Amino acid sequence: MSRSDTSRNDDLIEIEQLLAKYAVTMTKGDTDGVVSVFTPDGTYSAFGEIYPLDRFPQLVAAAPKGLFLTGTALIDLDGDGGEDTATGTQPLCFIDHTQQDMRIGYYDDTYVRTDDGWRLRTRAMTFIRRNGEHNSGRPHAISFTGE
Rank of each mutant, 00 (worst) to 15 (best):
F38D: 02
D80A: 14
A124F: 01
Y106E: 01
C93L: 13
T98V: 06
Y22W: 13
Y107L: 01
A73V: 02
D41Q: 11
S136A: 09
P57Y: 07
G81N: 07
S4A: 10
Q58P: 04
Y107Q: 02
I75D: 00
Q100L: 08
D101V: 05
D32M: 11
T72M: 14
L18M: 12
V35A: 14
V37T: 05
L53V: 09
G146R: 06
D108F: 00
D78A: 11
P52T: 11
A63R: 07
D116V: 11
N135E: 10
S143M: 08
L92G: 01
A63P: 03
R113A: 09
L77E: 04
T25P: 02
Q100K: 09
D116H: 14
T25E: 12
A86V: 07
G71C: 10
G48M: 07
L19F: 02
S45I: 07
I95D: 03
F94G: 07
N135V: 02
L59D: 03
L67Y: 14
R130A: 10
A61P: 08
I142V: 13
D78C: 10
D11K: 14
Y44P: 01
D101A: 10
G117T: 11
V24D: 11
E14V: 10
L120P: 06
G79P: 07
M102V: 12
F56L: 09
R55M: 12
L67A: 14
D41W: 03
F47G: 12
L59W: 04
N9C: 13
F144S: 07
I128K: 13
D80W: 10
D10G: 13
I13L: 14
Q100E: 05
D84P: 05
